[in-house]
Design a binder for these strands. Sequence first.
DNA 1: AATTTTTATTTTGATCGGTGAAATAATTGT
DNA 2: ACAATTATTTCACCGATCAAAATAAAAATT
Lengths: 405, 405
Amino acid sequence: MTSDFAPAGTLDARDATRLRVLQCIRSAGTISRTDIARALDSSPATVTSACGALLDAGLIREERRMPSENVQRGRPRVMLQINGEAFAVAGLKVAREAIVVMIVDFRGDEIGSFVSPLEASCMDPDGLVQEVRRALDAACARHGLDTARIAGLSLGIPGFVNGETGFMHWSSSVTERNVDFAPLFRKHLPCPTFLDNDANLVAKAEHLFGAGRGLSNFLVVTLEHGVGMGIILNGELYRGERGCGAELGHMKVQFGGALCQCGQRGCLEAYVGDYALVRDTSTGQQSDAAKSIQDILHAARNGDRLAREVLDRASQILGVALANLVNLFDPEHIVLARSRPPFDHPYTEAMLTSLRRNTVQVDAPLPEITVRNLDEMMWAKGAAALGIEMVTILKIRERGTQDAA
Amino acid sequence: MTSDFAPAGTLDARDATRLRVLQCIRSAGTISRTDIARALDSSPATVTSACGALLDAGLIREERRMPSENVQRGRPRVMLQINGEAFAVAGLKVAREAIVVMIVDFRGDEIGSFVSPLEASCMDPDGLVQEVRRALDAACARHGLDTARIAGLSLGIPGFVNGETGFMHWSSSVTERNVDFAPLFRKHLPCPTFLDNDANLVAKAEHLFGAGRGLSNFLVVTLEHGVGMGIILNGELYRGERGCGAELGHMKVQFGGALCQCGQRGCLEAYVGDYALVRDTSTGQQSDAAKSIQDILHAARNGDRLAREVLDRASQILGVALANLVNLFDPEHIVLARSRPPFDHPYTEAMLTSLRRNTVQVDAPLPEITVRNLDEMMWAKGAAALGIEMVTILKIRERGTQDAA
DNA sequence: AATTTTTATTTTGATCGGTGAAATAATTGT
DNA sequence: ACAATTATTTCACCGATCAAAATAAAAATT
């Protein structure tokens, strides 16, 4: 049942403590044992023992502290930090035209990246896994890394994916439906491999390294061709019962409204997705087909009324959708990750105004909103973030069994 | 910090185990120790000891088993069940015209109920608490109960309430905003008292006693004057960061749409709330003001086209809103609790069709939908459900400290 | 320079919850 | 009566955590 694929939840009490300590160190960056004990509200003794194990496993290291302004009396604290060299993890984002790879160390720092072009944007499962293998090998080769140093591999893919089992219900990148990737990964790839919805990965990245660090309840909305969302509740990715929730792009914002790619009406994507903007600004004239988001923005800036209206409406509707999220989830924070600048100023302003206007009024302040640029690499980095988490658990477990032996 | 008010989260390992065992017994109804061990995946020894404590505390009891079809060899299992007589809890729902009280035993079975009329539908905090006291005393008197037997009291109130702290941001029943009820409760009421949003209470009731028994992720949508929602995620009430999420009634389903009571546009309530139906079926003629939902339904049944259209649209829009929830939360189950019959057949059908049509298509089946009648008493019972849970925790803790002494 | 004070970490010994194994209990089948 | 079977309890132990004591490493003081 608990295969390689989903190692979480299988931690005994001791390993759970070690993991907590590790995560505390990671989120603090640099921290002493005493402060860890304080932060986790546990005894120094416990922290000492957990840190011992983590040091033995090579996952953290002691830092010879700066002789600087530590103007304190008493025995100086020994600072601990994540040992970046512990292992490397590859994050891969399967996009339309390429597989984007980012290799990061255990700290999450980039070691190198690589873009491996794809012949076809939609492949059969076996073909996809082989492309992944090719991308991984090429990325390692480019940066002079032995593929064996990669301790884990994490794959972000658009579509409905159950990140806990590796089962894919549907993806725009895969010809077949209902594929169990776990065995394919085991067969073709050299290290433990994890699969998740790409928006979930960005959420994970924000949670581990970005604006969501240390938060328990926050949302990440991704804005590119489509609109996606990752949900962190109680400090964990919420995946829904069947592993395919968070379909913000197909939230209906207008009853009987505009037609969406998915065949339904009034979906958010049908107003704010790239293709919707292109469609709605087209006037039936000449070069419309070639119109890009850039063109539309440009036109709007030059006073084109249609372009302005479409962008304005998109911003407002996006604000409504975010307001719906605030009304439903009441999160601490929302990260709005957009690929290209269609929602740049002044549209971000319009969006925020609409958000405020459509939120149920409580005296408590609204959740913070962070707008973040999201290039292709960020997706891959998000994948890597998940990989780090998963492999960390594997390593801690491994260590545990070694102790026992 | 951890006052009387929110006893959860303050359980040590042992009490947590006891609580798990107790909840297992509750959700099973009648179960043997061996089966509990199997269900909780723990050792029989642990279960024995936990049950010992629970028996001592009088929270559960052994059932002399039926001599019936237990055609098994070996030592017969001793069945355990919740001891209803352990204590009583009062659930109160603050409605517009009355406070509805239900007194239940520890099993959740009704001991008696009472409706205590209110002079005013909106009171100052002190007045409200005194009305609560009056309602409690009257209910006890009616059923010949000593008020001292009530081990806990739980209050459901419409509005934005932080159920974990007892802090009320706003409620339609209270003249003031931002009231901390906890000290008022301590001052005027004879037993530990808890406060929560009324929709949360119905969710709790479904989780403990209704369609959500044993489920981890499900939603309860309440349909009456307004539209509310309770969210259970990972087996717990999700309250959002500021304790005021789940505002389904103000989810925008139509950009720039119909005007809502709240002053915003396109809210779900503005299409499916009682007052919206009345408004939208009014033709500017004579007795419109007196029109009731019953009248509208009746008119529709008799072929009135406007009434039909309005009800049809309401059903469809409700379906869209539920589809949004499915797309976002991917729950196991949704309970639709409606107070009066505006969404009876054939409108329930229309609603379900709309739900199906607006859900993102995955091969996995849709969550189950249960439609449930929700009379005023159910709200009170929901409140009682929360009360049972809270008091259970208090009792288990109490028992723990007794042991220590 | 030696000593005191202060703070951080480790060691030690005790506690406690959970567990497996063995013992006991309560049946049915022979 | 005795064997077989299943449920529960008892018991000895393990391992995680913790408080307290010991130790370590510095700064301040003498």
